[in-house]
Amino acid sequence: MPFKYCYYVHHHGSGHVMRAIEIAKSFHDQQITFMGSDLLKYARHLPDNVNCVHLPYDTPSTQDTEYISTTPSFLHYAPLRVSGLINRNALIVDFFRRNPNTLLVVDVSVEICLLARLCGIPTVVIRQSGQRTDVAHRIAYEAAELIIAPFPELLDSESDNPAMHKTYYAGGFSRYTNVTTKNTFGQDVAIFIGQGGTNIDDFLIRHIRQQLDPFTHLHIIGATSDLLPLEKTTYYDKVHDPSDILATCDVVICNAGHNTIMELADLRKHIICLPAERPFNEQLQKAQYLEQVGCAITVLEKNVYRTDWNECVAKARTLDTTQLAALTNKDAVNNIKRALDHTYNHLLTTASSQNPYE
């Protein structure tokens, strides 16, 4: 059976695959293919309608002793003499050969977008935050039939997005968007550490704990190294669903990862952002937009040890959490599905159902 929709899932962090899962659920009446290098880790979370193409990693293996890490300006990652890169591209092209009338959603990779376009496969690119004005992004955005932003337009600008004119702002969403969650709105504070890399370490946690009011309980959600116990502090390590823990916390300190922000927006938390360093200033730009519209307070990495955290938490509590409603949209996933269906019908429904390569 040919697959109408294919979704390339980037393997850095968990945000890309969790977004893909939510979108796949909206295609409950048909099969959709996921392509990625780290999908097995999420196997128990995948909907029944998802078929997987497991790709080898594109990084040099121990056998690739003569690889050359050079990349031309119109790409982001294209080393020479890496066997995994050749093999994964062969699997992708073979899928296109067997499914020539598929629409590829790319989240995210300039190289995969261009590979598909060179094979005559139309692409829809998921827009990430940040200053995507470099040559590679401009080429990929031009090659794409449509760009979908899983966030509102107020978190973007023409200075960051050169293809704003062809970007569809579907609105943000998270696993809590259409779920009623229990908030007790206590005076606890949480430090929420995502899985995509962080600038929040044990030293900073101890520093924040020392500055907070001694009656404030601190909850640490996410992977950290072992620490000697701290007063009024609870460690949870990685938690699949942190909403019960967050229910007693009115303030959450976190990085500015996309899924983290959207989840906290849906949970209506007072947010303190510590944007981590990312390519294209992805988290920094998002945090600055959030602060501009009154949805969060931003503390830059260079200032984390210069900040009065008691005062920062008090300031965060003055934020109007009703502003967070502008970040997510209960219809966002359905908006994305409709946009994909429209693009597919426009480009591919008139195409012959016969596979020209058979």
Rank of each mutant, 00 (worst) to 15 (best):
V105Y: 01
V106D: 03
V106N: 13
D107T: 15
D107M: 11
S109V: 03
S109E: 07
I112S: 07
I112Y: 00
I112P: 03
C113W: 03
L114I: 13
L114G: 05
A116P: 12
R117W: 08
I121G: 06
I121T: 14
P122Q: 04
P122T: 11
P122R: 13
V124I: 15
V125M: 14
V125S: 01
I126Q: 05
R127N: 11
R127H: 02
Q128L: 15
Q128Y: 04
S129L: 02
S129Y: 00
G130C: 11
Q131R: 14
R132T: 11
T133W: 06
V135L: 15
V135Y: 13
V135C: 03
A136Y: 09
R138C: 04
I139N: 06
I139H: 10
I139S: 02
I139F: 13
A140N: 06
E142H: 07
E142R: 04
E142I: 10
E142M: 01
E145K: 02
L146A: 12
I147L: 10
I147C: 07
I147D: 03
I148L: 11
I148M: 05
P150V: 14
P150L: 02
F151K: 14
P152R: 11
P152A: 09
E153I: 09
D156V: 02
D156E: 15
E158Y: 05
S159R: 12
S159W: 03
S159Y: 07
P162Q: 05
P162D: 08
M164W: 02
H165L: 09
H165T: 12
H165K: 14
Y168M: 15
Y168C: 08
Y169K: 02
A170H: 04
R175G: 06
N178E: 10
N178G: 02
V179D: 12
T180P: 04
T181K: 07
K182R: 13
G186V: 03
G186L: 10
D188M: 09
I193V: 12
I193H: 05
G194D: 03
Q195P: 06
Q195M: 01
Q195I: 01
G196D: 08
G196E: 12
G197N: 02
F203P: 03
L204H: 01
L204N: 04
L204I: 04
L204F: 00
R206V: 06
Q210K: 15
Q210F: 01
L212S: 04
D213F: 04
T216I: 15
T216W: 14
T216E: 07
H219V: 07
H219D: 09
G222P: 14
A223D: 06
L227T: 08
L227S: 10
L227H: 02
L228W: 01
L228R: 00
L230F: 13
L230V: 05
E231H: 08
E231V: 09
Y235N: 09
Y235G: 05
Y235D: 00
